[in-house]
Design a protein around this nucleic acid. Structure first.
Lengths: 345, 345
DNA sequence: CTGAAAGCGCTTACAG
DNA sequence: CTGAAAGCGCTTACAG
């Protein structure tokens, strides 16, 4: 084993603004002004400062600056599982927008491995200038505290509890779902449509279920609770749920899977039971994940403008941080993407 | 438009350690000791301090602590494009491990929108305790500077330039590729195998190409430069590249696509030209992305232990940060995943 | 255009 | 077990 030891790592002394000041023969205030262009300084002085900084390979210390200015130039993102690929495009947008606006992104993912304590340490009101909250289970007390001190927070896909007036950004879950269900009813003449729910308490899922019921009632189809099961937005769970439905000999002619991940599990279960999609059963998803067009049959689904959600959330957060007016609720429109799994083509 | 204005955001005064000290009737040093359990304090004092903290809803200020301790408890990650879903599982592992070790994760993605200046601001030696570098194009000068001051840096899938002895973590690109090519040769009797390169300068791709050549020479198949094209690890680019190959009437019986994203483009191009995969042309990828098993035909590919790369990189970085010995080079083993697109089954 | 000094909110020897 | 004081590396009125 070849090993490397870091030489004098702890004893390393970085040059500070004082070292630069000494070398350039000016005061630290002048260095600070040069760094921030916060006041005019004479060209000759500027030259000397510049040279001193280069000679010393000086890099300003952001932490010290943060403490002095009481700003962090950092946006915090609290998200459920950074490992779910569905969120990735949203992450990209958030990162890009934050960066463009001069903010860094501090990400904290609420995986089972991450304790609430670690979150408390990571994302307080002190080391970010604002918080993007994208999780189902948030601590009301903490939110109330953040609201009380006027800390900028934007909620994503989640209505604020107890009327706390944080801006929220979401998508048109209900409309999107009801239109998809109506497509199944009117175009494909489906009547017994399974609805697979997401994780318990998930607001997206609840809204989608409302859309489902709305579409049924619009077409005078009675709601049948036996047609509702739980897929948890998870391939394996959705597979199991579908299996159970089949074992119970439940009769149905379509499945709204809740999300695209679930659709994969649902299709697998149907195929392994000898059923043909879409001939025997129409299958539709929600999200339009990258793989939706790649699977066979290609998946009819609802396109979720997740990038736009990311952008809009950052926009609102920047408004809050800057003390500008913000939008209480933004619901981004969705779009049906009709492919083969519903029966079209 | 309903608008919310944040009340007295800027004027808000957070309680500090001094306020707590005053309220509890002790010194700030005692509060600090309570906070960090850095020295024994009497039970009665502890009670008073605890109560004072709760009454004031005091939250310690990490920035101030960082400045005083000269540690940030933050790990920086420099990555090419946070939006590529292939990286997501790796991100999850990095975040989880960092968090478990008590570190936050500061992510900076080098999208076209992010200037080098913003990176310079975001991830200096001052606001992280160590850096994970996962990009092709890194600034040698900056790396040299970081090495000179003994700053902890671990390189991912990239050999350090100029013999700078940063630890690196990578995967067995060459072995994985050569074994896959040999599978095509020995099991499916393929002889004219296209090799699609990744982006210019990409080290993974270069190593894979070496594996490709090695396998050919092991089986006495002469290397034909006409069989090498560039897919850039991108679906559309790979589609175009395949199109061109077909237009040139190049004869081939297999394609190593470079990565899985490219495989999707390659298959589309082949299908639209009326060719059957795998009967006419074997197609194999690299990565084993989530969709590899979902497409038709299912994709034979090389499984890239990307999560393990993330874990290993954090492990090495923690070693550096703690001043412990570290591994100069770690190459994680890969595994062939044989599905249908090569011609098996 | 420039400098001296106080302050941001903590930690940490040092002394007791 | 506890306190007074210096210090972390910056910024920012204030004065000139």
């Amino acid at each position: 084993m070849i090993s490397i030891s870091q030489p004098e790592m702890k004893t390393q002394k970085y040059p500070t603004i004082r070292d630069v000041a000494r070398r350039a023969g000016v005061s630290v205030a002048t260095i600070s002004r040069f760094l921030n262009a916060s006041a005019p300084i004479s060209p000759e002085t500027a030259m000397r400062v510049k040279q001193a900084m280069e000679e010393l390979k000086f890099t300003p210390h952001p932490i010290a600056r943060n403490l002095a200015t009481r700003r962090t130039n950092t946006i915090g993102l609290l998200m459920p599982d950074i490992g779910r690929s569905f969120y990735t495009p949203m992450l990209r947008e958030i990162e890009a927008m934050a960066s463009t606006a001069g903010y860094d992104l501090l990400i904290h993912s609420t995986s089972p491995m991450n304790s609430p304590q670690s979150r408390r340490r990571a994302l307080t009101e002190h080391n970010t200038d604002g918080l993007l909250v994208f999780i189902d289970a948030l601590d009301s007390d903490e939110l109330r505290h953040l609201r009380a001190i006027g800390f900028p927070v934007v909620l994503m896909n989640k209505t604020p509890p107890d009327g706390l007036d944080f801006p929220m950004v979401t998508i048109e879950n209900q409309t999107g779902t009801s239109r998809m269900i109506e497509h199944l009813i009117t175009v494909h003449n489906r009547k017994r449509i399974i609805f697979l729910q997401g994780p318990v308490g998930n607001e997206d899922s609840r809204e989608r279920e409302q859309g489902y019921r709305l579409a049924l009632s619009n077409h005078h189809i009675p709601f049948d609770p036996n047609l509702v099961a739980r897929g948890c937005f998870d391939t394996q769970r959705a597979f199991d749920a579908t299996r159970q439905l089949l074992e119970k000999n439940m009769s149905f002619d379509a499945i709204f899977t809740g999300d695209d991940d679930s659709a994969v599990g649902v299709m697998d279960a149907l195929k392994s039971a000898g059923l043909d999609v879409p001939r025997d059963v129409s299958v539709v998803g929600f999200d339009d994940s990258v793989f939706a067009r790649l699977i066979t049959p290609s998946l009819t689904t609802v396109q979720s403008p997740i990038e736009q959600v990311g952008r809009e959330a950052v926009t609102q957060l920047l408004h809050l941080i800057r003390g500008e007016a913000s939008q209480a609720r933004t619901a981004l429109p969705v779009k049906l993407v009709i492919r083969e799994s519903c029966g079209c083509r």
